[in-house]
Computed example of a mutant assay.
Amino acid sequence: MKMDAPVCEEITVHEEIINHVNKEMLTMEEYHDLGTLFKMFSDPTRLRILSLLFQSEMCVCDIVALLDMTQSAVSHQLSVLRANRLIKYRRVGKNIYYSLDDEHIQYIFNAGVEHIQEH
């Protein structure tokens, strides 16, 4: 049985609130970018990769071994994370090492973990 959210019985627009909140809202482009960022956190494999990179910079071979996945599957997810600026890489000889792009990624992850563990 579907329950609708409660709504006001009388329509009253509170101009002061509307004006204040409207000034604080992001642009549509910023909401789009934020939605894209959160999509990166919607895949369990990407979350696992990120959690590994919280611990240490790692080469692809290490990530493959830890996740027990194929190199092509891991490489695909690394490519998606890198394209969305969550991770970066550096080359050392024939090896590629991945790390977080910045500390904000771990803050977002930790906030999500705290939220799900509260319930």
Results as ranks from 00 to 15, higher is better:
His119Phe: 07
Arg91Phe: 02
Ile87Ser: 01
Glu24Gly: 05
Ile18Pro: 08
Arg91Trp: 04
Glu57Pro: 00
Gly112Lys: 05
Glu16His: 05
Phe41Ile: 04
Arg82Phe: 03
Val74Met: 03
Asp33Ser: 04
Lys2Arg: 10
Asp43Val: 12
Gly93Lys: 04
Pro6His: 04
Tyr31Lys: 03
Asn110Arg: 13
Leu66Ile: 10
Ser72Met: 14
Met3His: 14
Ile105Arg: 05
Asn19Thr: 14
Ser75Phe: 08
Met28Gly: 10
Val92Glu: 05
Tyr97Val: 00
Cys8Thr: 13
Leu67Met: 02
Ser42Tyr: 02
Leu66Arg: 15
Asn84Thr: 06
Leu78Gln: 01
Gln71Asp: 12
Lys94Leu: 14
Asp4Cys: 11
Gln117Met: 15
Leu50Phe: 01
Arg91Ile: 06
Val74Thr: 07
Thr45Asp: 04
Val80Ile: 09
Ser56Ile: 03
Ser56Phe: 06
His20Glu: 14
Asn19Leu: 09
Ser75Asn: 13
Arg90Val: 04
Pro6Thr: 10
His20Pro: 06
Pro6Arg: 09
His115Pro: 04
Phe41Ser: 02
Glu118Arg: 15
Leu100Asn: 08
Ala5Tyr: 09
Lys88Gly: 09
Glu103Ala: 15
Val21Leu: 11
Asp43Arg: 03
Phe38Met: 15
Glu29Leu: 04
Lys39His: 14
Ile49Met: 02
Thr45Glu: 04
Glu103Met: 15
Ala111Thr: 08
Arg91Cys: 03
Val21Ala: 07
His104Met: 11
Lys23Ser: 07
Arg91Val: 05
Tyr89Lys: 13
Thr12Ile: 15
Leu26Trp: 05
Ala65Asp: 11
Cys59Tyr: 09
Met69Phe: 11
Ser79Tyr: 03
Glu57Leu: 06
Ser72Lys: 12
Lys23Thr: 10
His104Val: 08
His115Glu: 11
Ser42Val: 01
Lys94Asp: 06
Met1Gln: 03
His14Thr: 11
Ala65Met: 12
Phe54Ala: 01
Glu29Pro: 00
Gln71Ser: 13
Met1Ala: 08
His14Met: 13
Ala111Cys: 07
Cys8Ala: 15
Val60Arg: 13
Tyr31Val: 01
Asp4Met: 15
Leu78Ser: 02
Asp102Ile: 03
Thr45Cys: 07
Met28Trp: 09
Ser75Cys: 05
Ile87Pro: 02
Glu29Thr: 01
Ile105Pro: 03
Leu78Met: 02
Leu100Glu: 03
Leu81Phe: 01
Gln55Ala: 09
Ile63Ser: 02
His104Phe: 12
His14Leu: 14
Glu103Pro: 10
Asn95Ala: 12
Leu52Ala: 00
Ser42Gln: 08
Pro44Phe: 06
Asp101Ile: 11
Ile17Cys: 02
Ser56Pro: 00
Leu66Lys: 13
Ile105Phe: 07
Asp68Ala: 08
Glu9Asn: 06
Leu86Pro: 00
Ser99Cys: 00
Arg90Lys: 09
Met3Pro: 04
Arg82Ile: 08
Phe54Leu: 01
Tyr107Gly: 10
Leu26Val: 09
Cys61Leu: 14
Lys39Cys: 07
Met69Gln: 11
Val113Asp: 01
Phe109Asn: 07
Gln55Val: 10
Ser72Trp: 12
Thr12His: 13
Glu114Met: 10
Leu66Ser: 12
Leu50Pro: 00
Cys61Tyr: 15
Glu118Gly: 14
Leu52Cys: 01
Lys39Arg: 12
Gln117Asp: 13
Gly112Thr: 01
Val113Gln: 00
Leu67Ala: 07
Asn110Ala: 09
Ser51Arg: 10
Thr45Phe: 08
Arg82Gly: 06
Ile11Ser: 05
